[in-house]
Design a protein around this nucleic acid. Sequence first.
DNA 1: ATCGTAAATTAGAATTATTCTAATTTAGTA
DNA 2: TACTAAATTAGAATAATTCTAATTTACGAT
Lengths: 137, 137
Amino acid sequence: MTLNNHTKKALESLKSSPLKTTKQRVDIIKILFSDGNNHFTAENVHNKIENLGLNISLATVYNCLNQLTENNIIKSVKTSCNKIYFDTNTTSHHHFFCKNSSTLIDIESKNIKISKLPKIPNGKKLDSIEIVVNLTE
Amino acid sequence: MTLNNHTKKALESLKSSPLKTTKQRVDIIKILFSDGNNHFTAENVHNKIENLGLNISLATVYNCLNQLTENNIIKSVKTSCNKIYFDTNTTSHHHFFCKNSSTLIDIESKNIKISKLPKIPNGKKLDSIEIVVNLTE
DNA sequence: ATCGTAAATTAGAATTATTCTAATTTAGTA
DNA sequence: TACTAAATTAGAATAATTCTAATTTACGAT
């Protein structure tokens, strides 16, 4: 089983992060990054684990995904369907969200542009802009 | 207790909707529209009800808010804090979301502009665009 | 190599927001 | 005023996620 570049990079990021390199984290990273798809819920990941005959508890899946997120190895996306999706694309980007199929599709930053932004309220500062383009079928 | 225009309009909308004009719905509309604030969770509304000495069950608050939303008397907004906020502003608009205080602030449509949008994936159609400008303090 | 310790994993309980259920009450029409 | 579909209610159920506390593991120091 040769690892693709995304997986290798993510495993290196894990190694250089403060997180310990546990079997579970390595397995989860392999699952996340070896797939063509970028977007996973914790349950998606847990299902893949079970299908592969691996044994990682759902709590660990959640812990792991949250810590990978905190360490910028993956990103999380909150959608209007009230589930957290984890995204292997850590670059700044936006999303299509198809309401019928509950699927996310990346929109690269260069393909969407905001030309006017309101004044930021006093005492606050800009953190990030999230654009979700909702689709129907 | 004289009602402001927003409240009067919302009560008229209720009357002309298919929904029955119940005491609970009228009370909830009064609470939503008489306040300067536009954004409420179901719990916010339920707390106000209790503080006013009224007695409306949380289930009714949820039912009512959902039905007012379905009938375009209010709108609902999903935020990254995993709670549904109900918004008395039914015009097309966007939001600031302050992560520290979990507060929403309206951004009027005219104050934000998208000048470039990616091609909509085949077989799907555009439903809506949601822009959230996340703030920190 | 082994030890010690902080970190990670685990199963299952807890939590949070919301929806559902089924019995009772009510609005508004006939 | 009675009838009936709709609304309300308390409390149970659900779904996604987090917490708890006991056990196990990674990995730097010995």
